[in-house]
Amino acid sequence: MFRNTVVRAQNLLKNNLQPTISRNIATSQKLASSHSTETDEQFDQRYENFFNQKDIDGWDIRRGVTDLWGHDLVPEPKILIAALKACRRVNDFALSVRILEAVKDKCGGRPDIYPWIIQELRPTLTELGISTPEELGYNQPELHTESVFNL
Rank of each mutant, 00 (worst) to 15 (best):
R3I: 12
R3E: 15
R3M: 12
N4V: 02
V7N: 13
R8F: 05
R8H: 06
A9D: 07
L12D: 04
N15M: 09
N16I: 09
L17D: 03
S22P: 00
R23V: 09
N24Q: 05
N24G: 00
I25T: 13
L31R: 12
S33M: 04
S34M: 05
T37D: 10
T39I: 05
D40F: 14
E41K: 05
E41A: 06
E41T: 12
Q42S: 08
Q42A: 09
F50K: 01
F51A: 08
N52V: 04
G64S: 09
T66F: 15
W69N: 11
L73A: 11
P75A: 08
K78V: 15
I81V: 14
L84V: 02
L84G: 05
A86C: 06
R88L: 04
R88A: 11
L95A: 05
L95T: 10
V97P: 06
V97Q: 07
I99C: 01
A102N: 14
K104Q: 11
K104R: 15
G108E: 02
I113Y: 02
I118L: 07
I118M: 05
L121E: 12
R122I: 00
P123R: 11
L125S: 08
T126Y: 02
G129A: 04
P133T: 05
E135G: 03
P141V: 07
P141Q: 13
P141M: 11
H144L: 13
S147P: 00
F149P: 00
